[in-house]
């Protein structure tokens, strides 16, 4: 890179997690944790099925989607067999553990410890009938989309 054309560094990111599958949740968590490691301010906003990642009872049971997932490279029919999602989830989490990638609950606790803010989407919480005490204690608040945009001001928004 030349000295006179340095692009502006990213100083803040607001990451939206909208999916509740294993492969839907991890990318946002990795982006948030990685941002904090670089000294970048980060907030996580969980919406729709992404709320499962911060749901007290559900965040330990985030599963891999095996139906309609061409990335798995096996026949669609096989993906729908009973137990297939559990088997693939087990396989993936084993592989991740070998690489020392934390489980979803541990990862989220770690990200909260880095100083990132965790927020739940109000529209989705209303839709699913969830309240603040349904979520893990690291969740700072249930916020509206308007509050999210206000919070995201001056930074980059990443939708996952």
């Amino acid at each position: 890179m030349s000295d006179n054309a340095q692009p502006m560094p990213i100083e803040k990111v607001s990451i939206i997690v909208s999916k509740g599958s294993l492969d839907g949740v991890y990318p946002g968590l990795i982006m948030a944790n990685g941002a904090r490691a670089e000294g970048i301010e980060a907030d996580l906003f969980f919406t729709f099925f992404g709320l499962d990642a911060i749901h007290k009872a559900r965040h330990e049971h985030i599963k891999m989607a095996t139906v309609g997932n061409p990335g798995l490279h096996f026949a669609t029919l096989l993906g729908g067999l009973p137990g297939m999602s559990a088997v693939m989830t087990h396989y993936m989490t084993q592989r991740m553990a070998k690489l020392d990638i934390p489980s979803v609950p541990e990862f989220i606790e770690m990200i909260a410890d880095t100083g990132a803010g965790l927020y739940a989407c109000k529209a989705s919480a209303d839709l699913f009938g969830l309240e603040k005490n349904d979520f893990i204690p690291q969740v700072a608040d249930i916020i509206t989309v308007g509050e999210f945009y206000a919070m995201a001001a001056g930074g980059q928004i990443i939708f996952t």
Partner: peptide, 10 residues
């Protein structure tokens, strides 16, 4: 993160 606010490992 309190000790090294701009990224501890880095």
């Amino acid at each position: 993160y309190q000790l090294f606010p701009r990224g501890p490992a880095k």
